[in-house]
């Protein structure tokens, strides 16, 4: 998805992990994805640089669809669709 599409996307669940360092956001994403149904969208907020690559890779590996990342002021918004 391009940046405009991502901006207009409404997530079914938002995980705010901005207060944690690696591996906090990954663990938060793993915990939260279980609450979603297939096809639902999750957004992970993180201010951790390592997470920026980690969470998309994890999502793809686990059979979810990585939709893209938006950069906000001082943090990232990582979007995925549950597989």
């Amino acid at each position: 998805m391009d940046q405009e599409e991502l901006k207009n996307l409404t997530a079914d669940k938002t995980v705010d992990a901005r207060g944690t360092a690696c591996p906090g956001p990954l663990l938060a994403a793993k915990k939260a994805i279980g609450d979603l149904g297939s096809g639902e969208i999750m957004e992970v907020l993180s201010a951790d640089e390592g997470t920026r690559r980690d969470v998309p890779k994890w999502a793809q590996k686990k059979g979810h669809e990585y939709l893209g990342t938006l950069e906000d002021s001082g943090y990232f918004r990582i979007f995925m669709k549950k597989g």
């Binding site: 690696c22 591996p23 990954l26 663990l27 994403a29 793993k30 994890w58 590996k61 686990k62």
Partner: peptide
């Protein structure tokens, strides 16, 4: 702990 939790997140 960090390593183990990463592996756990990877099932």
């Amino acid at each position: 702990g960090v390593l183990i939790s990463g592996a756990a997140a990877d099932d």
